[in-house]
Design a protein around this nucleic acid. Structure first.
Length: 282
DNA sequence: ATCGGGATTGCCT
DNA sequence: GGCAATCCCGATG
């Protein structure tokens, strides 16, 4: 990998300013863009293509210092499935919405699904289908599939043929207001307000909250402009002793493979979907 | 063309 | 803690 662009220290301030701007944008206009505004944006876009100066201006606005410094590149995803599942803990998933709003959540729970022998995996027996193709693509490829005909789950392919990591829970860090809206849209009218910790505490909940659509399937998490992964800026990486390993959830019908301790979560974190006391004693 | 199962969620008791 | 919702996908004929 030839050197990635490094940001200069002065960009940190710009990044903070951009974040501020985004937060205000969220509060002022959380709803979708009106047709007029959309057209305006399109116009902006075309002039940008024709005018190189605008490209630079746009760059400093769109690609904030944060992105350049913290976005995790393809090297990060090049590790075995179980290892990647643990490495994801503490990292921050970022979703850049169409209106520029950025939603952030810290990953606190994952599951590893190996290819080949793992009977609980969609890629069991090395079987490739239209649905699971992303599991066989290069590490860092997003695999989104529909479950129970209703919900979506987001995975990221790892090293190893057909292997991928399921993202199960996030701690909401930024854009909670938007997350709340997007989650509430699918619930009964008049249902109580969700607490922050309930916004992303499940694999399909996080897809709803961050608006991860089915069409993100097969995209590259290391390069996509609308979704990426960052190092956490505020806290140190999870120490191994803070990680609980437990059997994966919802795969009881798969015998021995259901017992493999390939679910990983941050011990004591309130955003974990299901706590396994038995596993925590060990 | 049809059939059975599913890496979940939310409401209800 | 039980269970309905809801329908896509993959396997089979």
């Amino acid at each position: 990998m030839a050197g990635r662009k490094r940001k200069t220290p002065t960009l940190a301030a710009a990044a903070a300013a951009a974040d501020q701007h985004n937060n205000r944008t969220v509060k002022a206009s959380p709803t979708k863009l009106k047709k007029e505004e959309k057209e305006e944006k399109e116009e902006e876009k075309s002039s940008r293509w024709e005018n190189p100066q605008n490209v630079e201006t746009e760059r400093s606005h769109y690609f904030t210092g944060d992105d350049l410094q913290h976005r995790l590149g393809e090297e990060f995803f090049q590790q075995p499935c179980v290892s990647l599942a643990k490495a994801f803990l503490g990292k921050v998933l970022v979703r850049r919405c169409a209106d520029g709003t950025e939603l952030r959540g810290r990953i606190v729970e994952t599951e590893a699904y190996l290819g080949g022998e793992d009977e609980a995996s969609h890629s069991a027996g090395g079987k490739r289908t239209e649905r699971n193709t992303a599991m066989f693509m290069k590490p860092g490829t997003i695999y989104v599939y529909t479950i129970y005909g209703i919900h979506l789950c987001m995975n990221v392919s790892s090293e190893g043929d057909g292997a991928a990591v399921l993202l199960r829970s996030l701690e909401p860090l930024q854009g909670q207001h938007v997350m709340k809206q997007q989650r509430a849209a699918r619930r009964k009218e008049g249902a109580r307000q969700l607490k922050d910790k309930e916004l992303c505490n499940g694999p399909s909940k996080l897809c709803q909250a961050l608006n991860i659509p089915r069409c993100f399937d097969r995209r590259d998490l290391a390069a996509d402009p609308e979704v990426w992964l960052e190092r956490d800026q505020d806290t140190s990486p999870a120490k191994p002793q803070d990680v609980v390993s437990a059997p994966r959830i919802g795969i009881e019908s798969h015998g021995e493979w259901a017992k493999k301790p390939w679910r990983f979560y941050l011990r004591g974190h309130t955003c974990v979907s299901v706590v396994n006391k038995e596993a925590e004693r060990q």
